[in-house]
Design a protein around this nucleic acid. Structure first.
Lengths: 94, 94
DNA sequence: TTGACATGCAAGTAAACACTTGCCTATCGT
DNA sequence: ACGATAGGCAAGTGTTTACTTGCATGTCAA
């Protein structure tokens, strides 16, 4: 399985995760349109390659139906980050 | 300020954070020795450059005393990751 | 069946990145 | 003062990465 940290290193990939958190189950084409609308200039191919990285990292799950590719968010791989360096997410600041 | 995500993208930098979490306030030289002991082959210059990236990201704080450079861990910039994609770190799994 | 639509695949390019090399500065012990 | 120690700076190198370009595949509607 791929590297979650490396997957998060790119701003466009983070924007994809943001977009999927806002609306999971989007089509690749939808994703491209909405990212373009938010100022990202990435082409479809670029986004497709980013999705491959995110899928490798387990942050995204992909299912193909007909000619559509539906993309779902899975944030569970992020937990390893939370577990590795405990910043105390449950404790509030003083 | 630098990019926290990009700072975490490198395995050696993550090992530095691990090492500092185990013992914060280490010297650069100590850090080099202990990382070498754990199988990392990075030179002092390489580690110094990694520290610059970590410092830029706010994950590490550096103070110079005499000829020693003391390095302290600061995990607080990680909180932005926790806040961005809520994976529910406080809820236990079912 | 034909054409438009949604996506896949692969080679090439330019920039970013991690690391080395070589030398320089500053501090401490003796 | 002198040598040894701890670290800094900067140019050069090789690899990785993000992106483009061009074409191929598969699906649906008419």
């Amino acid at each position: 399985m791929g590297d979650v940290y490396k997957a998060l290193a790119d701003p466009t990939r983070r924007a994809i995760l943001d977009e999927l958190q806002d609306r999971s189950g989007q089509t690749l084409f939808e994703l491209c349109v909405r990212l373009t609308g938010k100022g990202f200039t990435s082409s479809r191919q670029a986004i497709s390659q980013h999705l491959a990285v995110l899928t490798e990292a387990g942050l995204v799950v992909v299912r193909r139906e007909g000619r559509y590719l539906f993309i779902d968010l899975d944030t569970s791989p992020l937990r390893q980050i939370y577990d590795r360096w405990r910043v105390g997410p449950c404790e509030s600041d003083t």
